[in-house]
Design a protein around this nucleic acid. Structure first.
Lengths: 258, 258
DNA sequence: CGAGGACTTGAGCCAGTTCAACTCATGTGG
DNA sequence: CCACATGAGTTGAACTGGCTCAAGTCCTCG
């Protein structure tokens, strides 16, 4: 498994599952137990938290920074199968080895629980296990959306989708960074990670973004910060339906499809 | 969600989850309840069981034949995000709409449960919900493996991987079809579906397979049946580690990585 | 027998990769 | 405080795997 919620895809966000902290709306006793069990850990960008196929003694949630879940072919090619942002959960329960490596894409702060301890809580609190199941369902849906992106879409479509997801996601958090004001997007990861996430190369990403800037879809403040000038067009470029629509106007949407 | 277990990828198979029927090793009372709830349905190849974004009134398991879970971009491009074979479960619990369409890739027989009824069982039998969670974890792992395949691997590697998975999977079932004797593989789906599953085109698949035949990696009995002549080479072509190894010799494997 | 569908084969093309050069920004040590 | 290394990102030019389109072949079925 992996996250109580992931970045990934439009669909995940419209789900009914609580996306926020693992502790939200939870029995006080369980809350206490989790607090007792939790340990804060910090890692610098680039550090490996859990290696692929490695014994993972703990699970946890991201407090700050970004984790990448990545898989490596043994000739070295690699793909990021998920990014974990603050409030997302990482680690694999009910299996001693993770099938992905978990690494710090930026400096991160984590709240870690011993895997054994967490599994005991899961068995003691069916409500927690139920939430876990709902999270897995969400994450699976995200993964399926991402497969569609990797399997069928052009590099420009992938980038446009990624930017829209980032924007939507940061819009949910209170604007602690001024960046998410207005129409700007912050890329929290390197071009290299972006390439590994989108299944392409840094060169292709660079070209695609410069092209979007040339067409006034966005303007490049610096390599990590863009201003979205034409959201309508960006959504078209993503090759997906308007994700905001899905989120905001479910009824309208139902009328359209009916 | 989707399947209590899927085709997909090497890793899924090594998991500890029961892959077989949903009913295996289960409390007699639950077994009775499931039998009471289950309804047999048949669909012809090509029929749509549940449309994408559609209200899905039931979930169920595949008894015979193959289902495809597929997603469609609204310009028509589509990807199969999973194949469901006998004993696999389909349908999405705890959400009224599926995010994938479920269609009959061949003539199929299904055992269907009303979604509402099944969800009641899930809440009454925590053991069932726990199994469900384990299945989701497996399926997520499969999905991550498939992302790696779609994101990084060449068409030949994808096909080789697919053939190996098929072979491994059919080896598990008693050889009711003589096909799985010896080194032959049966492709249960059309080239078109294979292309949609592997994120490529029928033409590329055809060329790749013919190429493998020319190099004596396999021989083509007919478009649906191949004989594997050089398994070693096929595994190399897949760009993955020997999946048999993972499955059969976990201890040996642990020694290697240690 | 002819129509239609599934698969294969061929030829040309193009999106995206590869490889290499270049621009910056950052940091380090003399 | 500069010289220089280092790494991230961009740009250019050439190459290529896989796609597209079009024409086959082969089978099945009415």
């Amino acid at each position: 498994m992996t996250a109580l919620s992931t970045l990934h895809t439009p669909a995940a966000d419209q789900s009914t599952t609580q996306r926020c902290s693992i502790c939200q709306g939870m029995e006080p006793e369980l809350h206490r137990q989790l607090q007792r069990l939790g340990r804060i850990k910090r890692y610098a960008a680039g550090e490996i938290i859990v290696g692929e196929e490695e014994e993972a003694p703990f699970v946890g949630t991201v407090t700050s920074g970004v984790l990448r879940m990545q898989k490596t072919l043994y000739d070295g090619r690699q793909l990021i199968v998920g990014l974990l942002m603050p409030s997302d959960m990482f680690g694999r329960v009910f299996s001693s080895t993770s099938n992905v490596s978990i690494e710090a894409a930026t400096d991160v702060t984590l709240c870690c629980y011993s895997r054994a301890g967490f599994e005991i809580l899961l068995s003691q609190f069916p409500a927690l296990e139920h939430r876990m199941l709902l999270s897995m369902l969400d994450e699976l849906e995200s993964a399926q959306n991402w497969m569609l992106l990797l399997g069928c879409q052009s590099v420009t479509e992938r980038i446009a989708t990624f930017l829209l997801i980032l924007r939507r996601r940061s819009a949910k958090f209170p604007p602690d960074s001024l960046q998410c004001l207005g129409n700007s997007v912050t890329i929290p990861i390197s071009r290299r990670d972006m390439a590994a996430y989108l299944g392409t190369t840094v060169e292709s990403i660079s070209r695609s973004i410069q092209e979007m800037a040339r067409h006034r879809v966005l303007s490049i403040i610096n390599p990590q910060h863009f201003r979205i000038l034409d959201e309508r067009r960006l959504i078209e470029l993503s090759g997906r339906e308007d994700p905001e629509m899905k989120l905001s106007f479910p009824v309208e949407r139902m009328l359209r499809t009916a």
